[in-house]
């Protein structure tokens, strides 16, 4: 598999390590009401789709960026990649 790194172009997946579903970016608030339930969901439960999956890859033998890669789990086709930092900042409304 070749991952289209947003900064470095196509790079071999072997340079990366895998973490899992990109929902791991959305860490719940540990102080909020119902935090235990929210954390159970966050840590343990997965959509695990057969098809398009957004997932976190770390460019370990590369520029050490975390990427959100969109990939089809049935065909292994890679549909795109973004810097996880950009995705996380966009989710926070662009705030630093």
């Amino acid at each position: 598999m070749l991952i289209p790194h947003p900064l470095l172009g196509l790079r071999d997946a072997q340079e990366f390590t895998y973490l899992g579903d990109a929902s791991l970016l959305n860490r719940p608030d540990g102080m909020a009401e119902g935090a235990a339930e929210a954390f159970y969901d966050y840590v343990y439960l997965r959509d695990n789709p057969a098809g398009v999956h957004r997932e976190l890859w770390f460019h370990e033998q590369g520029d050490r960026s975390w990427l959100v890669v969109t990939r089809n789990t049935v065909t292994h086709e890679i549909l795109g990649a973004e810097l996880a930092r950009d995705v996380a900042l966009a989710a926070k409304g662009g705030a630093q």
């Binding site: 470095l8 172009g9 196509l10 790079r11 071999d12 072997q14 340079e15 370990e60 033998q61 590369g62």
Partner: peptide, 22 residues
């Protein structure tokens, strides 16, 4: 290295794996 050598012209630099070493 698993880098496209033809596209890796003078002035290019990258980190990659070489026999499992970074």
């Amino acid at each position: 290295v698993n880098i496209d050598a033809a596209a890796f012209g003078p002035g290019s630099a990258t980190r990659t794996g070489l026999e499992h070493m970074s």
